[in-house]
Design a protein around this nucleic acid. Structure first.
Length: 478
RNA sequence: GGCGAGGUAGCCAAGUGGUAAGGCCGGGCUCUGCAAAAGCUCUAUCGCGGGUUCGAUUCCCGCCCUCGCCUCCA
């Protein structure tokens, strides 16, 4: 598999450092509220990345952290009148439920910042010892950027002029540091932190944000590992600072490869609560769409391209045309899958593990290859649809149909796409079923006026009559 | 201001130095009493202006526009 590397700015072949297991770290969510669809673009893409690696024959070791202590978790837990732990556990559960709905494989390890305070403190001690960090008067400890000559290599900081405080986020009276570029490894306890503090050699306080990832990477993946991942916005400062901490501490190169996903836009603009275009999975489901349909949309653009999530139609109504399109496309694939299944006669159970071990993907090999080439999900979809067009299930021998069926499922598993279940045919209320039956009789008698009237009545009641070769079907419109 | 990404059909979105995948929507056709469903099929010269080249959407230069980052936002 090949993938673009942010550090070298090249598409590079992925090779595990050790054995046949690819070991990587993904920056996870800060659990202080529901994750939004932009967050999930990243987490879904990371999941497709992992699935592709595994289907390409590698084993993986996937670590993703939970940030459960920072300004926001402390602030919002206090506002909610809960302990930090109760508060973050609540949002962690929500996050896991959403990931599950979206069909993301759970990481092999999911460490949390609060669960790794000793490791973080130990790392700071090493950094202080080695002269890369200093304590300030308020009990905080800062990383000295000037002590780390290659600082900025990931974000090409050496080539930028930092506009100090351009984001408006610096409030330099809060903490005392030598240089604006320095960042906190440990934050001295403040009044507003309440009971959320830990003991350390520098007094009571809590770890800085960047540090947790460095400490947990080291704990579970060692000094050097295969790949580190996150959204583009993490390139600077978060990942830059992680590199500085880790490499200053261990002297070893932190990660061989850096994988960053570009942001999602909503209706061409940034998603924000004030613009009322801020969506969570719950919002999508409330609007009548499924997590699977959202997943389709989230991987419909290449990960290094901005993805424009269209929520409003040309009239400005919030009708989610992107999700409607996804629904149609998924239904088309589902129908094709059904026709392959019919042509094959019987089809076996086919799990993700089966997909990993399958070597003959038939006509869908091309789709897998598109994923293996810099995770080109839109190209993969294109190739799936092209293959579907080329295959005539009715003309295939059962064994050929089975082969294509397995190949299709493998391509879908690689992207984590779940097909919609077949439409419910029965379960219509008796009076609807009765009308449909009367309509069928009228049709047999060629009494078109009566037949059409009954069909319209049934339709108004929310059920659609579809004639088939043998008779008719009743489908719920809901 | 600095750095980065991007502008491809109504919408979404791949890709390529030799005249552009795929999906949605829409049109046409087939089938059907009609309809739905299904199948087939049609719809772009790639932001603008130069340059390099036999030839550029693809390379270079300039311009316009959009988006992101510039210290705790995936």
């Amino acid at each position: 598999m090949r993938l673009f590397d942010t550090l070298s700015r090249e598409i590079r072949e992925l090779k595990p450092r050790e054995g046949d297991t690819y070991r990587f770290y993904c920056c996870g969510p800060t659990v202080y509220g529901p994750a939004h669809i932009g967050n999930f673009r990243t987490f879904v893409l990371q999941d497709v990345f992992r699935r592709t690696l595994e289907i390409c024959g590698l084993k993986t070791f996937h670590v993703r952290n939970l940030t459960d202590v920072d300004d926001k978790t402390i602030r919002d837990s206090q506002a909610a009148g809960k302990t930090l732990t109760d508060f973050t556990e609540y949002w962690t559960k929500k996050f896991h439920k959403d990931c599950d709905s979206l069909n993301n494989l759970p990481p092999h390890k999911e460490p949390s910042a609060v669960g790794h305070i000793p490791q973080q403190v130990a790392m700071i001690e090493e950094l202080v010892e080695k002269g890369h960090a200093y304590r300030s008067d308020d009990g905080s400890v800062y990383f000295s950027v000037s002590s780390f000559p290659t600082y900025g290599k990931l974000s090409r900081l050496d080539q930028r002029e930092l506009k100090t405080g351009a984001s408006g986020a610096i409030t330099d009276d809060e903490y005392e540091k030598d240089s604006v570029a320095d960042f906190a490894l440990w934050k001295g306890r403040r009044e507003e932190d309440g009971e959320n503090y830990w003991e350390s050699p520098w007094g009571q306080g809590r770890p800085g944000w960047h540090l947790e990832c460095s400490a947990m990477c080291r704990e579970y993946l060692g000094e050097s590992f295969d790949l580190h991942s996150g959204g583009v916005d993490l390139v600077f400062p978060h990942h830059e600072n992680e590199i500085a901490q880790s490499e200053a501490c261990t002297g070893a190169s932190m990660a061989d490869h850096w994988f960053h996903t570009t942001h999602l836009l909503v209706d061409g603009g940034k998603m924000s609560k004030s613009a009322k275009n801020f969506y969570t999975l719950a919002d999508i489901e409330k609007a009548g769409f499924t997590a699977s349909e959202l997943r389709y949309v989230l991987i419909s653009a290449h990960y290094r391209q901005p993805l424009n999530f269209v929520a409003r139609d040309a009239e400005g109504n919030e009708s989610f045309p992107a999700l409607q399109g996804a629904r149609q496309a998924l239904q088309r694939i589902a129908k094709f899958e059904k026709s392959l299944k019919d042509a094959a006669g019987e089809t076996p159970e086919f799990s993700y593990e089966d997909a990993i071990s399958l070597t003959d993907r038939g006509s869908f090999e091309d789709a897998i290859q598109a994923l293996a080439d810099d995770l080109n999900t839109p190209e993969a979809f294109g190739r799936i649809f092209s293959a579907m067009k080329a295959i005539k299930p009715g003309d295939l021998k059962p064994e050929e149909a089975l082969r294509e069926w397995k190949g299709l499922h493998t391509a879908l598993e690689a992207m984590g796409i779940e097909l919609p279940a077949e439409e419910e045919k029965s379960e219509a209320p008796p009076e609807i079923a009765e009308k449909a039956e009367q309509r069928w009789k009228a049709k047999q008698d060629k009494d078109w006026a009566t037949a059409d009237r009954l069909r319209d009545e049934v339709l108004e009641a929310g059920w659609e009559i579809k004639d088939t070769k043998e008779g008719y079907e009743l489908c719920s419109k809901n």
